[in-house]
Design a protein around this nucleic acid. Structure first.
Length: 858
RNA sequence: GCCGGAGUGGUGAAACUGGUAGACGCGCUGGACUCAAAAUCCAGUGGUACUUUGUACCGUGUCGGUUCGAUUCCGACCUCCGGCACCA
């Protein structure tokens, strides 16, 4: 009987579906386990990255289920987003139509992989049943001040008539219109006040032991907490004051000029009517034109312009000039900085460039700084000088004292600052959840009343061929009555960032059919938090941070009991492949290169590096093709076997062949011996066995032990699979060389083969179901309890002990397993080869590690 | 620049708390089966040297250190990958 993957997989997938095998219900009597993989964007078809991610998840889900847990393993679609709009314009269709078509196809692909999802919980974020709850939460956030509107600067493409995300700006131009310069436009945007939770989110980074350290580090850096002080500098000849944020208030006596961000709101008033006005405004305009990415890149030259105005250093009483500079960030701190050129390299460079003075306020212990001779800033520690009553104090100790003094003098105060900024959720896009707000000339900004939710995204719209949202051109959508006064009013036409949808989809999986509110308290409290979350490292910051924020918002509204959504996080590596290119035709798809030559021109193919699979590099393998050729089980197995999950996976066709070969071997070992196996019982562990069956029995239990530990403790499926391969090697060696197993041997054979089938079942669920049933077993493997190893079976009579002389391996001996220290030492010293290496030298010391080694030091 | 992570055969990788480096797979070499090929099976496979049975030496990015013993711990450096980066 030949292994026919297509037949076997179709058979069992049908059986699983017909018996609702993957359906899960809340059951308070059983321990729950919530396993989640990041849901995909329905871009068209699944790619290898999805396959790897979801295979890893499926193994864990199936394993936990066999361990007796009540496992929630859902799947859905991150279905809003810009690609749908672009595809719609390109193919002259509707984003919704395109999206749902993709979902249908990708769902069939996931089913073809044999993943154990409870499809009854499937959700798509573009469904009003989903996004209406987001609108409700928005209203509550608006009420609490957690959602607010403010002016902000955005990247704007005039041709698209829309805002561009950072990654859509290429060399300062629109990604779609290379000739269209992106402009920085001031625009009203809706924000979520994530900064209100910055401290809590940061603090709890220390209490997420199940997260990779590097993800936590990235989140901490992103939040970027710093302690410092706000200091107020009065503007000379004015009642106004300028606030600066500094972490170095110990150097305040050394501040000899001030720099403003170009966006600083005081700037225009400050220069009005001065000689410098024109120059400053020109500088501001020029600087703001450059997109913020370029402006803050390290290759951009620091420059600035004198404003013609001065402010007073409140510590020294001295007048210092005010500049506007391109490197000062408007949205960090206060948008203005005090410059201390003697002790900050950036300020130093700026001062030298514009001929500004320095004042040393920190003297190091071992050298004497001279303001005129300095070639760089001194950023180290030392004692304060030129600092009034603080002279002589160590600068680090003075940090606190100066802060106190600033507070007592009323010129400043201590503060904590975060790099994290509030989350801009406004998108001038069509394919997203509408923001439930109405603008009325009489009443201003009015939230849509709860009873009027959802604000449906209109489906009968004409997409605009040059891009941009059709909503502002759709009177049937935006024309409405003011809920307060009943007068004519206009709806908000911005939609929400799609990261909002992905910030709570995992909660909704617990109760996707709930209609009384966003979340069913009973079901959500049973399932949440997610026990294991699995996805790509590329979401380490934004998605995970937003989810942690939104979870807290839902908690504070009483919808959720948990603060942290994901207890354990596994970030899997990328799927990579080497690139191939031809001198004339550029990058080649794998099937465009035959035998090292370009299929089109016959030129020799140039092999490039092994990098992440991407369409642009054409180094992609379509999972569908692999499944058609080898079956889902082979693809799943290769994804797990080639490397541990957190590392990158290098796709290698010959490796896939290897996995396929192994499955064929397993198939043959069972089917070729089916009659003898079926006729035999399973060895029950009772009674003494003769070799080689005694060893095989031991190997079986060692394999159970190893596979269990590899999956349970560290998700190292590659070594788990290796262990089963070793067991199979032992089995075939015995069958090939040994005597006919006979009455004693077959039960042990059956035990070994059945263990292999069960242990492999989370990895390759179809072939194992078939073999299980061929072996005469009833029911699905998911219902079989995960095997436990028997301690007695692991026991051995003898062990190999390594003998070393001066730490070098010289010999080995077989000793009884319970051999004592003295006996071991004696055995080592009497070993012929050990004695040869000891020679005439006196033995200084003997180190004995029972069951492991003896090291003789001479 | 700062913060993470990683460097092991021809190759993907193992070695879980310092104790036999290279499990398992791929590739390669030789053999069996076959008219032949494919498939399958068996054996070998880190390097160098030799007296080629075997034995010795070297070997986990580099250089040092701790230790009876280091891929594992410590210090310095090099390379690669990821993140952040004029953050005041």
């Amino acid at each position: 009987m030949k292994y026919d993957a297509q037949r076997v997989e179709a058979k069992w997938q049908t059986q699983w579906e017909e018996t609702d095998l993957f359906k899960v219900h809340e059951d308070p009597d059983r321990e729950k386990y919530y396993l989640l993989e990041m849901f995909p964007y329905p871009s068209g078809k699944i790619h290898m990255g999805h396959v790897r991610n979801y295979t890893i998840g499926d193994v864990v889900a199936r394993y936990k289920r066999m361990c007796g847990k009540n496992v929630l393993h859902p799947m859905g679609w991150d279905a809003f987003g810009l690609p749908a709009e672009n595809a719609a314009i390109e193919n002259n269709t509707h984003p919704g139509e395109w999206t749902y078509r993709n979902i249908d196809y990708m769902r069939s692909q996931l089913k073809r992989m044999g993943f154990s999802y409870d499809w009854d919980r499937e959700l798509a974020t573009c469904d009003p049943d989903y996004y209406q709850w987001e609108q409700l939460v928005f209203l509550k956030m608006y009420e609490k001040g957690l959602a607010y509107k403010k002016k902000t600067h955005v990247n704007w493409c005039d041709k698209c008539q829309t805002v561009l995300a950072k990654e859509q700006v290429e060399n300062g131009c629109c990604w779609r219109h290379q000739d269209q310069e992106v402009v920085l436009k001031e625009m009203d945007s809706w924000f979520f006040k994530i900064t209100a939770y910055a401290e809590e989110i940061l603090e709890q980074c220390d209490r997420l032991p199940g997260w990779p350290e590097r993800v936590l580090t990235m989140q901490r850096n992103w939040i970027g907490k710093s302690r410092g002080a706000i200091i107020r500098f009065p503007v000379a000849g004015s009642e106004e004051q300028v606030e600066v944020y500094t972490t170095r208030q110990d150097t305040v006596f050394g501040a000899t000029f001030m720099c403003f961000a170009p966006e600083h709101p005081m700037l225009k008033d400050l220069v009005r009517g001065t000689e410098q006005e024109r120059e400053v405004l020109e500088f501001v305009e020029r600087t703001l034109k450059v997109d913020s990415y370029i402006r803050t890149a390290d290759f951009t030259v620091k420059e600035g312009v004198f404003t013609g105005r001065y402010c007073i250093n409140p510590a020294t009483g001295e007048e210092i000039p005010i500049f506007v500079a391109n490197f000062v960030l408007f949205d960090y701190g206060t948008g203005a900085v005090m410059a201390v050129p003697a002790h900050d390299q950036r300020d130093f460079d700026f001062a030298r460039k514009y001929g500004l003075r320095l004042r040393v306020v920190i003297q190091p212990e071992d050298e004497k700084l001279d303001e005129d001779a300095m070639t760089g800033a001194y950023e180290g520690e030392g004692r304060l000088v030129n600092s009034g009553s603080f002279n002589g104090q160590k600068n680090l100790e003075a940090l606190d004292r100066i802060a106190e003094w600033l507070e007592s003098e009323g010129i400043g105060h201590r503060t904590v600052n975060y790099r994290l900024r509030d989350w801009n959720i406004s998108r001038q896009r069509y394919w997203g959840a509408p923001i439930p707000i109405i603008y009325c000339d009489a009443c201003g900004t009015v939230p849509v009343p709860e009873k009027d939710l959802p604000v449906l995204l209109p489906m009968d719209v004409e997409m605009r061929s040059h891009g941009g949202s059709p909503l502002p051109f759709e009177p049937s959508f935006y024309e409405t009555a003011c809920p307060r006064c009943g007068g004519a009013a206009r709806r908000e036409t911005d939609t929400m960032d799609t990261f909002v949808e992905s910030s709570w989809y995992f909660d909704r999986y617990a109760c996707p059919d709930y209609r009384q509110g966003p979340l069913d308290p009973a079901r959500v409290s049973y399932w949440m938090p997610v026990d294991q979350y699995i996805g790509g490292i590329e979401h380490a910051i934004l998605h995970l941070l937003y989810s942690r924020f939104y979870t807290r918002v839902l908690r504070d509204f009483g919808y959720l009991e948990v603060s942290e959504p994901f207890t354990n996080l596994l970030t899997q590596g990328m799927v990579c492949k080497e690139t191939q290119s031809c001198p004339t035709h550029g990058y080649l798809f794998p099937d465009e290169a035959k035998d090292g030559r370009c299929a089109r021109c016959g030129d020799e193919v140039v092999l490039g590096g092994t990098v992440k699979m991407s369409k642009s590099k054409r180094n992609v393998i379509d999972p569908q093709e692999m499944v058609d050729r080898y079956g889902a089980d082979t693809v799943r197995m290769f994804c797990l076997f080639a490397s541990p999950p957190e590392r990158d996976l290098e796709w290698n066709e010959q490796g896939v062949e290897g996995s396929y070969r192994f499955l064929n071997r397993v198939w043959r070992l069972v089917t070729d011996n089916l009659d003898a196996l079926k006729a035999s019982a399973v060895f029950d562990g009772e009674g003494e066995l003769a070799e080689p069956f005694r060893s095989l029995h031991r190997k079986t239990h060692r394999t159970i032990q190893k596979v269990t530990a590899d999956i349970e403790d560290r998700f190292h499926f590659n070594t788990a699979v290796s262990a089963v391969m070793e067991l199979m090697n032992d089995i075939s060696r015995i069958l090939g060389e040994g005597p006919e197993p006979g009455e004693e041997g077959w039960p042990v054979m059956r035990e070994a083969l059945e263990a292999a089938v069960v242990l492999l079942s989370p990895v390759v669920p179809h072939i194992t179901e078939e073999l299980w049933s061929l072996l005469g077993r009833e029911g699905n493997l998911l219902g079989v309890p995960w095997p436990r190893y028997r301690r007695e079976a692991l026991e051995v009579d003898t062990r190999t002990v390594v003998l070393q002389v001066n730490g070098k391996l010289r010999s080995r001996v077989e000793v009884r397993a319970d051999c004592g220290r003295e006996e071991l030492e004696k055995a080592a010293l009497s070993d012929e080869r050990v004695r040869k290496f000891i020679g005439e030298k006196p033995v200084k010391k003997v180190i004995v590690v029972p069951n492991k080694l003896v090291n003789v030091v001479v």
